[in-house]
Design a protein around this nucleic acid. Sequence first.
DNA 1: TTGTAGGCGTTATCAC
DNA 2: GTGATAACGCCTACAA
Lengths: 331, 331
Amino acid sequence: MNMPTSRDVAQIAGVSQTTVSYVLNGRGNVSDATRARVLEIAASIGYRPNQAARSMRTRRSGRIAVIMGAGIDTHLRLLAGAAEVAQDAGYAAESHHVDGTPDERGHRVLDLAASGQYEGILTIAPVPDDLEPPQGSDCLIVPAATFDADLHSVGPLADGTLIGDLVERLAAAGHRTFVHVSGPDQYVSARARSAVYTEAVQRLGLHSLGLIGGGWGAETGRRAILELPAQDDTIAVIAGNDDLAIGVLRGAAERGWTLPDDLVVTGWDNHEFGAYTTPSITTVDVDFREAGRRAMRTLVAALGHDDAQPEERGLMRIIWRESTGPLPSGS
Amino acid sequence: MNMPTSRDVAQIAGVSQTTVSYVLNGRGNVSDATRARVLEIAASIGYRPNQAARSMRTRRSGRIAVIMGAGIDTHLRLLAGAAEVAQDAGYAAESHHVDGTPDERGHRVLDLAASGQYEGILTIAPVPDDLEPPQGSDCLIVPAATFDADLHSVGPLADGTLIGDLVERLAAAGHRTFVHVSGPDQYVSARARSAVYTEAVQRLGLHSLGLIGGGWGAETGRRAILELPAQDDTIAVIAGNDDLAIGVLRGAAERGWTLPDDLVVTGWDNHEFGAYTTPSITTVDVDFREAGRRAMRTLVAALGHDDAQPEERGLMRIIWRESTGPLPSGS
DNA sequence: TTGTAGGCGTTATCAC
DNA sequence: GTGATAACGCCTACAA
């Protein structure tokens, strides 16, 4: 059926369609009486501005694409936060799910940018670092996590500093031998955490068995443990997420290693299952939804030519559980 | 920057804008030579039709809203499948994340329908069963899982029949005492599985300790076990998903119950962690992405006034693991 | 086989 | 303070 138009509202209110437009956009000078009548009538007949017409006239599509990978559960919460902010800012957020390598995603992103349909693109799944919007496109591409000009990781997800706290605390508990199962290094967040790990291990003079990359999946964690040479010392495993950590746990069980004597392990993301494994998994809780909001705020601010005010509150906190064994009290 | 328009293409090609439109839409009669030239020029200058103008003219927004809850990880894969199909059919899929009760989501859905911006709405998170689009709106509302007129559950996700197989196989292994930790009954899929559970238990003359509802979270599973009266017989727990199942495992560990003597348990969804717990969790793998595709195909077909051809291939299969103990061989 | 013209619902410019 | 009027880019009768 036909939706009412602003012209219908005008007709009923006995004013010109222009006036209705003024009222709805808060522009121009309209008397209070007229404004009130227009608003009332608009509401009563269920008038909603037609987005297509509006964007045709304003030449702003009001659409933002959000690029997701397909496999990572936490991305759903990022998307939820991002979509919320986009909507509140009057944008429609469309999610595009692209499997494959960052390069493949990069092509897709470039194509979307070239399509001219989108005012902006938020990439949650990793794309190549040097992705530049095509010539003459004014589509803004904002990665949810990235590096700044000095190669410092930035963005709400890229904060790996808590890895340092994890390592320090475990070192304080007497652990000396560490290993980092890091996740795919296409992810800025993974690289950021690896960098912090490396720095912390060196600073504290600890022994590191190295960085083990691979996928985000549990099997990577399991294999990492199975392929480790036999150790005398307890190994402290810093895993890049909880899936890797549960794989580590499984690998340890298969080797007959027990916690916390032979091995301790930390995860990341605070996936629900980690609180219910035996032993439960020490992890870092990440407020993904808020991270999604912040990333989208950055994009929306850029589109409005505003500066995004930097947000202060940290999005992460360590949750100590059984997988790290007993620790000395205090911080 | 300004995108080229069909008029630009026409000008360069030395034809009228009408001809360009005909070529692009495959309508009208255009000579092969003209068609080829137009297409070549369109491609060379990067022409893309402007969606806003098109939808203004055709009066079809080309937008579909997908309603998600915020908390359920598997919904990401449903969304991925749904978005893929929508896109291939020329629709833009926008995800809306609404926390809260089905009623609250229902209000949001109705508001979206009334906005006139969407041609269709796909609800992945549950909404009230009797949700009807507002008077005079031609927005189609399709739930990803629902009931038909005979109260049989339909839709790709609502198939609970494998619960019957699970129960049968465990009964064949000698189990007699069952309990179902079912998940929130706002979910059609949860209700469908509960119904199948109840039917199977009765048909096989088994003892059921009942249905335990609550949330989808692991804590519900844990509490269910902790609150169970002491049992002589082994309890076979049919859990509504893997999170519930890992909670069951944790609860059993806290009670000092061991598998498979005191308890066996099955999950649902084939979440990755379930293969790496100790014991690993018997579960049902669900092809969520394909389920999302099918749900969206239904909606898109309805929008095109096509009939969706029913899809045959099952989306689920049981994966037997350690949490159900040894089973007699054969099916 | 191709071209002309009108309008979809908005916003924005300019007169009154 | 308010109202005509002209686009925005596309599709589609209808005319040539």
